[in-house]
Amino acid sequence: MNPVSPCLPNADPWLAHTVRIASITDEIQDVATYRLEFVDAAIADEFSFLPGQFNMLYLPGVGEAAISISSDPQQRGVLDHTVRVAGNVTGELARLNAGATFGLRGPFGSAWPIDECVGGDVVIVTGGIGLAPLRPAIHELLNRRDECGQLTLLYGAREPSGLLYTNEFDDWRQRGFDVAVTVDRGTDAWKGNVGVVPQLLDRMPLENPEQTTVLCCGPEVMMWFAARSALGRGVPAERIWVSLERNMNCAIGLCGHCQFGPSFICKDGPVLRYDQVAPLLRVEGF
């Protein structure tokens, strides 16, 4: 159902491939998008990924961090990662300039179920940096716009300055995505919506809830309430998908860190079906 990634053509899953930073785009404070290219052309040719998958970015001497791929899967040769400075690896990455090299292992993990989305309506519910792993899904759905019903993105952040990719929203809207944005705290300049993302879902008209797929990525509490709202509106639990996060060390299911009950977030996830994880989501410390 949820495919395990096609691993790079590489017998040793511990071997990182050298990548070079082609360009860096500053997004918002402490968040930048790194466009990477493989130094080995053969790898570049082979590399493909599914929306929602992630790579382990490896800065020698510092460590590895799991970072989702944020570019369009159909755009061969373009490999973007949108990274927020959170600690050692991401902090060191932020100090690198275009041209710098480091390592990459991947792609890893499960993908957003695009094939299950097409044919019906899709609601994407996300907040903050959580939009990064969904950007490939937005592209993929727009690539297949004709096959989909209503497409809606509900996106929130703490403040207006925390909203990612705002300069792309108009393009997405033009190509057929409804984009609704909200912030937890307004500012004087903010003319948009104030309130939390699940509230946008509450008030959204869902014409065909049984045919609607909901894709969520953000803080677990947010996803939990978004799912509750969707369920309350008649969306079947099997059509709600969440992307989960746990400490990630190896990304290949061998180190034990990312377990979430029966699932390894790295290989069974990060994208998991809501009904399969719901009972554990609100268990403290699990």
């Binding site: 959170a86 600690g87 996060e245 746990r246 400490n247 034990g256 860190h257 377990q259 009950g261 029966p262 403290e284 410390g285 699990f286």
Partner: peptide, 27 residues
């Protein structure tokens, strides 16, 4: 073991013992 930059998942020994036993015998 379960550290994430925005918070540790299993921050009490109770959580960690439960993780060990439920992993070993259940999941």
């Amino acid at each position: 073991f379960s550290y994430m930059s925005h918070g540790t998942t299993r921050n009490t020994i109770t959580h960690r013992y439960r993780q060990w036993l439920t992993h070993k015998l259940a999941s």
